[in-house]
């Protein structure tokens, strides 16, 4: 195997890792603060992708891509906020089965509505002209859009790190994880904070869908399959840990690239094996903390 192959394979692995991180980060953020696994997260991601594809079908010009990248997260964040206020808020005190089933119901409802709005046919969104070519990296030609996806993932990771570690809002979110009662007593509207966190997490899903839309066909089965990858990444990293999600995504990206290179027909099974092995060794994931649930 020569150097060029390694660079290309490495970049593909990073692209896979980037798209996995983009979808898992919001899931982990929500879990970190709310202790809820959102089964509908993949469906929200699909809404972001559909939004982008619809926008593209409407015009097809390049600048609308950037508008979509901005508006799709807001659109999906609004759906998330509505779901939080009407449904999730009622079940934070209930056990995890109830929470899983509520988000599962949400998954069913949102999938059905997506079918109603967009039908069963698969749509596609093109890459904007400025990102549709190839770029030279380390002596090889690589699709510019894939590099853009990697850049988006890095930017998202840095933004979340800054948000959680460097802002008042982030401190409050972390305080809500540890001790919501004290936070409420010190004058924070915890209910509104949770709605906001859920909206941000959903918005990240919407952003992810919008970014990924030009790379694949957008169809009704998207949410159902992508949520499994998101679970795997978030669980390997440790639920609630953004850094863990980044590590999990990188690990899965590498495992998948190696798998596709050597044993293509078994490659899809490898990521599940990776998760099973990690959890068998560390039942709370790589960066997860042991908590009482």
């Amino acid at each position: 195997m020569n150097l060029q192959v390694i660079v290309i394979e490495g970049l593909s692995a990073m692209t896979t890792a980037a798209s996995l991180f983009i979808i898992a980060a919001g899931l982990s953020l929500i879990f970190g603060a709310l202790r809820v696994i959102n089964v509908a997260h993949g469906t929200l991601y699909m809404y972001g992708a559909y939004f982008m594809a619809t926008l593209f079908a409407a015009s097809g010009s390049g600048w609308l891509f950037w508008v979509g990248l901005l508006v799709a997260p807001l659109f999906v964040a609004a759906i998330g906020a509505i779901a939080e206020v009407t449904l999730l808020r009622r079940v934070y005190e209930r056990d995890h089965l109830v929470q899983l089933l509520v988000t599962y119901s949400l998954f069913l409802i949102l999938s059905d509505l997506a079918l109603r709005f967009w039908g069963t046919a698969s749509l596609s969104a093109n890459q904007p002209p400025s990102l549709s070519g190839a770029a030279m990296v380390g002596g090889v030609m690589f699709p510019a859009y894939d590099l853009f996806v990697i850049g988006c993932a890095v930017a998202m990771g840095l933004a979340l790190w800054a948000l959680l570690g460097r802002t008042m809002l982030g401190w409050k979110i972390r305080a809500a994880v540890e001790d919501p009662e004290t936070l409420a007593a010190s004058g924070t509207n915890v209910k509104r904070l949770f709605t906001l966190v859920f909206a941000i997490g959903s918005g990240l899903a919407g952003f992810g869908g919008a970014v990924i839309a030009p790379l694949q066909s957008v169809d009704p089965g998207m949410g159902q399959s992508v949520i499994v990858s998101a679970f795997i990444v978030a669980v390997i990293g440790g639920l609630g840990s953004i850094a863990g999600a980044a590590i999990g995504a990188t690990l899965i990206g590498i495992v998948e690239a190696v798998g596709i290179f050597y044993l293509p027909s078994w490659a899809p099974a490898f990521i599940f094996v990776a998760m099973i092995v990690v959890l068998a060794v560390r039942p709370v994931g790589l960066m997860g903390q042991k908590l009482g649930y």
Partner: peptide, 28 residues
């Protein structure tokens, strides 16, 4: 393997096994 994990992790681990068998059946 799955019962070593607790609660949510157990649920997600069983889900992963479900998908593992699914992709194997689909690919082979």
């Amino acid at each position: 393997i799955a019962l070593r994990a607790r609660k949510l992790y157990f649920a997600l681990l069983t889900l992963a096994f479900s998908q593992l068998f699914y992709v194997v059946a689909e690919q082979q």
